[in-house]
């Protein structure tokens, strides 16, 4: 019999065994990619430096809600309570920043690191890959669009004497809050990924996303207020404007006097159509890109 010591030279022998367990296939593969991407969006499982920006930006989105709660706690009933439909105005900049930082990471990372060929040679189709990425990014964005609303709902309830009474009173607005939060998240996710997926260069992707949100906004407002008429169509090209319009429509609220939606004068349902159209176009572009890309 061989002495045991002869095996110490081949230490790699420890370990490998054949696997006879279940193989869960395509759905499981897509779900795993979804979770991995979602975790990655907040830098979970990565180094500390990749956690800082997403978490900081997410905190920005919560600050108005927290300030409101503080004011309500200090001044009681006199503090004016934010309406859910107005909260988009507070989170739109954090949403834009979050997209600018995270979309290039989600869309371009595997392209830059050439990991795509590993994904596409596994139990996963290219369309599964694209859809899992969009879904994960949209989910990450709901933290910004819905998270503060949840904090507000419970916080305001706590500030009143009767928390369940408050929540019951405001229950009616919950479906609208949910729908608008999900729609905005889906729209921003799909279209920002579509922009970011067109290049493997991170810087270009970030600039494209920032430009879509922040450059269109002043241009659209100038065109609407200064020119009007056909120029008012510019609201459909400025995501801050049409997303806000969509939120107002879902809550069946009137645009504020002299707001850009008021000034443009289009029916409010058209903003919902715009959000849906951007979502669909974005998803189609992301799919198209990953169906064609060489891996």
């Amino acid at each position: 019999m061989q002495p045991a010591e002869t095996r110490t030279g081949s230490i790699y022998d420890l370990g490998y065994r054949n696997y006879d367990g279940v193989r869960l296939g395509r759905r499981h593969a897509a779900m795993s990619l979804y979770w991995y991407t979602l975790r990655g969006a907040f830098g979970i499982g990565r180094r500390t430096s990749s956690k800082i920006l997403p978490i900081l930006i997410a905190i920005f989105a919560f600050i108005p809600a927290i300030v409101q709660l503080g004011a309500a706690a200090l001044f009681g009933d006199e503090a004016e309570i934010f309406k859910p439909q107005d909260y988009f105005g507070f989170v739109e900049v954090p949403i834009a920043l979050f997209c600018a930082v995270i979309a290039p990471e989600i869309a371009g990372r595997d392209l830059r690191q050439r990991t795509l060929s590993l994904y596409f040679s596994r139990a996963l189709l290219r369309q599964d890959y694209a859809l899992a990425k969009i879904a994960a990014f949209a989910t990450a964005l709901t933290l910004l669009t819905l998270g503060p609303q949840v904090v507000l709902l419970f916080g305001n309830g706590l500030a009143t004497d009767d928390i369940w009474g408050y929540i019951q009173d405001n229950w009616a607005e919950l479906p609208q809050t949910l729908v608008s939060g999900l729609l905005i998240a889906a729209c921003a996710a799909a279209f920002c990924l579509a922009l970011a997926a067109q290049t493997s260069r991170r810087a270009y992707a970030t600039i494209a996303v920032i430009a879509w949100f922040l450059i269109t906004f002043p241009i659209a407002n100038t065109l609407v207020y200064a020119i009007g008429g056909v120029g008012s169509l510019a609201v459909y090209f400025s995501p801050f404007d049409f997303m806000h319009g969509c939120t107002l429509f879902i809550f069946n609220a009137e645009p504020g006097f002299d707001s850009v939606q008021d000034e443009a004068g289009y029916p409010m349902w058209t903003y919902l159509v715009a959000v849906l159209a951007y979502t669909a176009a974005g998803a189609a572009l992301v799919l198209r890109r990953f169906m064609r890309i060489a891996a």
């Binding site: 367990g21 193989r23 869960l24 499981h28 593969a29 795993s32």
Partner: peptide, 13 residues
């Protein structure tokens, strides 16, 4: 571990 799951293995496996 991520790649193993993409290949259909349950998380613990």
């Amino acid at each position: 571990a991520h790649m193993a799951q993409i290949n259909g293995l349950p998380r613990s496996a």
